[in-house]
Structure formats: structure tokens, C-alpha cells
Design a protein around this nucleic acid. Structure first.
Lengths: 234, 234
DNA sequence: GCCTGATAGTGTGATTGTCACACCCAAGCA
DNA sequence: TGCTTGGGTGTGACAATCACACTATCAGGC
């Protein structure tokens, strides 16, 4: 559509892309969403989903959301900027500056292989990630570090868990992030005393043991406490 | 030098710049380094120092350091990436994506108006900053928030203070960042027990009151403790 | 040289938060 | 019905945090 044309500048220009590190949680493990590249540099290799920004037409965050939705069909997720990577040789073709984003999604909200179309997007457990295209290994490493750090002092874990969850699952997630074990009783006491979880008076079903109570993150309670100078920490 | 030429692409390209928020500390107040714009959009208005990256030739951090050194002559400072701003209309001319950096310098290391040349760079107290060009107000706001947050859990304050400093000054800096007052005795005890300050057995001179002892940040002690899983917090 | 104003430096006790720890309970399944 | 699995609950020891007030030292002015 439209006549082919070209764009001329007085100086060399870099290309700008966005790449997204999408984390999902699956009962026991963190997963990242990877695509398989269908085009030339690094064709066939795994990479982070992303693409070029539409110059003059969208903000960086809009570009990240657009790419994510196009390539993976996911919606409703936490998204924040992670950092920008711009070494001149990070793309073998020419100078590409990429703005990396960091997304947290509820895997349970999206049908197992949500792929609307195009290149295959698939969840990959964090400790089985293959070598990635470009400098995406480095980007992923930064994202991991940021996620683990941030889970402790921002209530981001609730963006990964299903809306209703038992405390056990919350604890597992935090143990994964901190790399250590946590005492069950202390964990429960601490979390419940924060007053940001709503007890749903429901229990799990279909489990082969005593069913656990389900809770929901109470965002407005969280915001109220935050306004009063309190801050989340686990 | 070199023949004038142009650069042609199949797609529209954004420009990429770096901008630096440079903080300095002056006994009692935080200052930011601002330049006065000498060129068209926002000519004559205050702005953050920065400029275009050299496409294909330097990384983003190299670009930030180059621009800072060119425009202000400062050297030896802490520099980290702050975030990237890329709304299509943030520059009235065309789509410019800017990668913001965040620098901490010892004002005492640099002669009062270090300007090597070119446009005038000047320190401005944080609470007297005028309205800035582009979206630099927003960038500065993000930087301030990041600085205040980070001072509490990373030993960045020592990058702002002179190498030898009395505890009083350290306390002032932290009070500024946290917006509250702190008990002198508790502060001293806490800081000294960290074991990351070296007592120089020297005192201030030329003060109209009892001279305070001077201390120095002991980076290797800090790193050793960090490796053992300890973390800085004030 | 002595008085004054300004800031440096120092210890304790009360309170609060953090941590480690073990047992009984409910439900599904064989 | 009993075995297995994980759910749910309280207390006491210890450590960290907080609030708090006085004496010491220096420079400058009188």
C-alpha cells in the first residue's frame, strides 16, 4: 500500500527497536516468552519478541505493547521499561538501538500457546533458555536481576500469579526469586499482617490434600497504605 | 572535513540522543548541571546537557560520557542509565528518542564553572530549576526520584561528597534525600557500625566551631561486605 | 583572656521487629 | 479406614531500632 519511497537524512541514523522480556509463572517455575526468528540475522534462533518502532507515530511503550500483542496475542499485563542497549555492533547489519521492556503476565489468562499467527511464540522455563539472538542473553540477564530485585519491594508477584491464589504459591514465587527457603509461618504472618490480601473464603478444589484458602491481592488497600508512607517488603 | 553527503533509508528513522542529569552536592543542597541552549528549538532556554550519538561508532554510555566531557569538562564520575524517552512529539522537529543518563559528581573536584568552551554550563540548585526545554522537566523529575530512592540502598552519597568528609555532611545529604530529619546519634552509630568508613584521624580546619573528624568511604571494605550477602541501607 | 555561640561527640533503656521452631488438621485416594 | 500430603496455627529468644540530653572543643569578638 502506498508508493514505495525512501527517506533521506543529513546524518547517519540508527534504527530503534523495542524488545520485551515477558515473564510468566507456572506453579513452580518462572518462564520467559521466546519467539523463533523467521528472518535473516539469526534466522531460526530463539529471540525476545520485539520489532521496529513506528517513527513519528507511537511512543516507546506503545510500540512495546503493539509488538507484544501482534506477536503473542497477550493483553492486560504489567509493563515497564528495563533499559536501552545500543552498542554499535549488537546487530550485524547496522546500528540498532533497542529499548528493552519487561512484562509480567498471568500465564493462566492466556491459552497455552496463545500465538495468534506469524512466528511461533513459546514459553520457556528460565533455566532452560537456549542461546539467544543478538545481545538478548544480556538483556534477559538484566531482566532477571531486575525481576528478582523488584519482587522484594514492589508487589509485582501478584501480576504473575492467578487472581485467586493460595499463600503457598505466593511463597513459592518468593522463594524462587530470593533463591532461598523461607519459613512458612513467618511468611504467612508477615504477608497477612500487611493487610493487602483479601481472604476470599474459598478453597482450592481438585487437590489431593487439604484444600488451601484462596486470597486475592487488594490493590486499593495497597495504595492506601503506600500513601501513608508504608512500603511493601518481603 | 569530508564531502557533504546524505544518508538514505527505506523507512523513516528516528534520531537518538543522550541527555545527562548531573547532580552535585554543595554543603547543604543538591544542584543539577544545566546548559543554555544555543540553537533553535528552545534557543536560550535551559536544558540538560546532551547531544546526538555517533551512529555506528560508539555505545550509548560512551556517547553520554563524550557529551558530558565536551560540554562541561567534568571527568571521573558515577554514571548510570536512567531511562529512555521517546514520545514522537517530544522534539518539535522530528522524532527523537533520547536515552537519559544520571551522573553524580564531586562539585569540589571541578572548578566552579568548569566550562571548557561552547555553551555555558552552570550549576542550579534543585529547587530553583527553571522550566526546561523539551521534556527535560520530566526527565529531571524521574532522575530526582531515582536519586532519592537509590541513595538509601546504594552507597552513592559518597560519589557526591568530597573524598574526605565529616559525618555531619553525610547526614545532611541523607536528610535532604529522605526529606526528613534523622537523629544524630543513631545515624552515627549506624553508619560507623557498617564498617565502610575509614577514620582519617584528621579534623576540619577553618571552621568557627569545634572541628569535626574526617572520614573516607572505604570501597574495598564495602565490596567485601557486599560479597558476604550484606547490603547497605540507611 | 574570657565569654559566647555554634557544632562535635558520646550511652542507655524501652520498644519493636525478626527469627527459629513442631504439632494437629483436613481431604483425597487406595 | 488409614495413609499421605500439604494446610494452618503461637510463643519465646534475640536483635535491631528508636528516643532522648548533656559535656567538649573551637573561633571570634569584646
Amino acid at each position: 500500500m502506498g508508493t514505495p519511497r525512501t527517506y533521506t537524512y543529513d546524518y547517519p541514523m540508527p534504527a530503534v527497536t523495542v524488545d520485551c522480556v515477558v515473564f510468566g509463572w507456572d506453579d513452580n517455575d518462572l518462564h520467559v516468552l521466546l519467539i523463533e526468528r523467521g528472518e535473516k540475522p539469526y534466522e531460526g534462533q530463539a529471540a525476545l519478541p520485539g520489532g521496529f518502532i513506528q517513527v513519528g507515530r507511537e511512543s516507546l511503550e506503545q510500540a512495546a505493547r503493539r509488538e507484544l500483542e501482534e506477536e503473542t496475542g497477550i493483553r492486560n499485563y504489567h509493563l515497564e521499561q528495563l533499559g536501552t542497549f545500543g552498542n554499535p555492533d549488537r546487530d550485524p547489519r547496522y546500528h540498532v538501538v533497542t529499548v528493552a521492556y519487561f512484562a509480567l503476565v498471568r500465564k493462566s489468562d492466556h491459552r497455552p500457546r496463545g500465538g495468534t499467527d506469524a512466528r511461533s511464540a513459546a514459553w520457556c522455563p528460565l533455566d532452560e533458555v537456549p542461546s539467544l539472538a543478538f545481545d538478548h542473553d544480556e538483556i534477559l540477564a538484566v531482566a532477571k536481576k531486575r525481576l528478582y530485585g523488584k519482587l522484594r519491594y514492589k508487589p509485582l508477584g501478584f501480576q504473575l500469579l492467578p487472581r485467586k491464589f493460595p499463600l503457598r504459591d505466593l511463597q513459592r514465587l518468593y522463594e524462587t526469586a530470593s533463591g532461598g527457603e523461607v519459613d512458612k509461618r513467618n511468611f504467612r504472618k508477615k504477608v497477612l499482617e500487611m493487610g493487602i490480601l483479601e481472604d476470599l473464603n474459598e478453597t482450592e478444589s481438585d487437590v489431593a490434600h487439604r484444600a488451601a484458602r484462596l486470597y486475592r491481592f487488594n490493590e486499593s488497600a495497597y495504595r492506601k497504605r503506600s500513601r501513608d508512607g508504608w512500603h511493601f517488603e518481603l
